[in-house]
Amino acid sequence: MTTQTFHKDTWELFKSLELSKQLTTGETLAKLGHEHPEIVALCADLGYPTRLADFGEKFPDRFFDFGLAEKNMVTAAAGLASTGKKAYVSTYASFLGVLCAEQIRTAVAYPNLNVRLIGTHTGIAMGFYGTSHHATEDIAITRSMANMTVISPADGVALSEMIEESVKTYEGPIYFRVSRGRETPIYENNSSNIQNKIGKANVVREGSDITIIACGIEVKQALEAAELLERENISTRVIDMHTIKPIDQEIIFNSAKNTGAILTVEEHNVQGGLGSAVAEVLMESGNFCKFKRHGIYDEYSIIGKPYYLYHHYKLDGEGIADEAKTLLNQS
């Protein structure tokens, strides 16, 4: 980690809001706010932890804090979108993609409105705060909703680029699934090129023996796994499948054909998440290869300090490398 105030075991910060640098929704919207008067933003008493408040500070008349009333917030966002707004809603994923599933389905996805939901602190990143604060179901829930786009960006640059695309050109409801903003970035800041485009997966490392398809902060962990595997002469391709729906099918076909093994990695229940989405594509295409879904194995995650928790679930570089070797050794 890059800062001395960040504790690698606990993920706690001495000044907890200052360093959630990868939560870029608010600053991106603030940058676009003058040119795009249709942007409005809604939060539920977590404007600072989600950093949506960065938009509110510049555009207070287009920023609404609903207090601890998430269902009302999501449905009101739908009402705002029906008047021509692009409504950006952010709170913790467990209180958005999980708690508000019905409001998202009925008031947002079914009428196909421009509501963008940014579920932060997803997966098991909340560590010891409790299983109630873990969100290991939100991909499955939102992926099953027609009209919905589901995106799990790897870092703050990726989030910012795809938020910007959602303002400028992309239409329809989107669920963004992001972490706590304290993760190590993988994309280049202030790049002149757009590095993440909705619906198009990124090959972030080339390799020929196995492909790891990951999303969210697991992309960085997959890259670390690839480094470890390299030492054992295993050449690993790593794909950032940031858009889980609609999924980039071509890159899955290509990886099955060219590497012969695919390991999916996500901090989500293996039932219904990224791994399931990749499996569906493979099975229906007839492109078979060695395959495993790695993630949370249909259980409620235990609590712990994040560093130890990711290690426990083998969702760090070492654990993922181990899973990859097991898969390759299968007959």
């Binding site: 609404f64 009101a76 009402g79 705002l80 029906s82 008047t83 409001q103 009925t106 008031a107 009428p111």
Partner: peptide, 25 residues
């Protein structure tokens, strides 16, 4: 029809959003 409905209890929240939209515009 200004908004799809069917799930009882959503309507007033939709109205809050529409009213905020009028104010913004």
């Amino acid at each position: 029809i200004d908004f799809s409905s069917g799930s009882i209890g959503h309507g007033l929240s939709v109205g809050v959003g529409m009213s905020l939209g009028a104010r913004v515009d």
